[in-house]
Design a binder for these strands. Structure first.
Lengths: 145, 145
DNA sequence: GCTTGACTTAAAGTTAACTCTAAAGATTAT
DNA sequence: ATAATCTTTAGAGTTAACTTTAAGTCAAGC
């Protein structure tokens, strides 16, 4: 029900250093201190850290995450802003996933190409395989490498 | 068939500064210079830049990309290494996409939650909606925020 | 022939997000 | 109660990937 900074670090995969850094940046305004000044993380604090990891993972900078936390603290008057923020993150996430899928197609092409090249012992011998050229045109525009 | 650094910048969405920086870092070993010392980018160089963008986009650091280019220059003796590299990038990409999907689930939950909160004008009034709690448990482990 | 804008180099500066250091106080195991 | 370990603070250092600066060269338009 109350975790030390070391325990919180282990639970989240972050380091104690990073947790102090996050606190300094205003990302952990709910973490309490014990009588002797030690941080005490609650389950809710761990939940916040997991939300932070999520937002960080979709590419939000720490400043943007802090904005969300500040809105949360401000209360129900910021509900629309928070909803808007999540909608924007969803759109950004969809764009990212589409981009990654394109990269995946290119990389699959390369794996195909290099698999055949390794078989033959030569890249040049394989580059003009008509089957590969067709796939290449489908995946890329019209590149090399 | 030959592009100035400014044209190459426009074609790739990078800045001329960045292209010079990439060259300095060894990522553009094939770019030629004109008699007066100006860079001349070929279509193949543009293709390399697109491959660089792809690898950067899947999270490879410039050093790793340079390694690939160095292997390419070294020739067919490095075919296996290059194949291996692309296989690793594919695995990393798959992990990333799975992670992003998890984040997407959380964010969809938040959009759902905040949509209802905005409707009611209160987050607290909505937090305990049994329908939402069920979805929350499905999406998260057991968090707040 | 002069201005404007693109280009050259080398090197210093910027930003985000940590990461580490030092010196001291607190907690836990034996 | 004492050694080993954990935690505290403020502040300096690190890393990747640019980004800007300074000081100058080159080419095109009027």
């Amino acid at each position: 029900m109350g975790y030390s900074i070391g325990q919180a670090a282990q639970m989240t995969g972050l380091t104690a250093h990073t947790l102090r850094y996050y606190e300094k940046e205003g990302l952990l305004p709910f973490v309490k201190k014990s009588g002797s000044g030690l941080r005490v993380f609650s389950d809710s604090d761990i939940g916040w850290l997991q939300m932070i990891e999520c937002l960080k993972g979709v590419g939000m900078p720490l400043k943007g995450i802090k904005q969300y936390i500040d809105w949360f603290i401000e209360g129900d008057s910021t509900l629309e802003k928070r909803l808007q923020m999540f909608k924007e993150q969803k759109a950004s996430l969809e764009a990212q996933m589409a981009q990654l899928q394109k990269h995946m197609n290119k990389i699959n092409y390369k794996i195909n190409l290099y698999s055949k090249a390794v078989e033959k012992g030569s890249l040049a011998l394989v580059q003009n395989d008509p089957e590969l050229l067709k796939e290449k045109e489908r995946v890329y525009g019209n590149e090399q490498h």
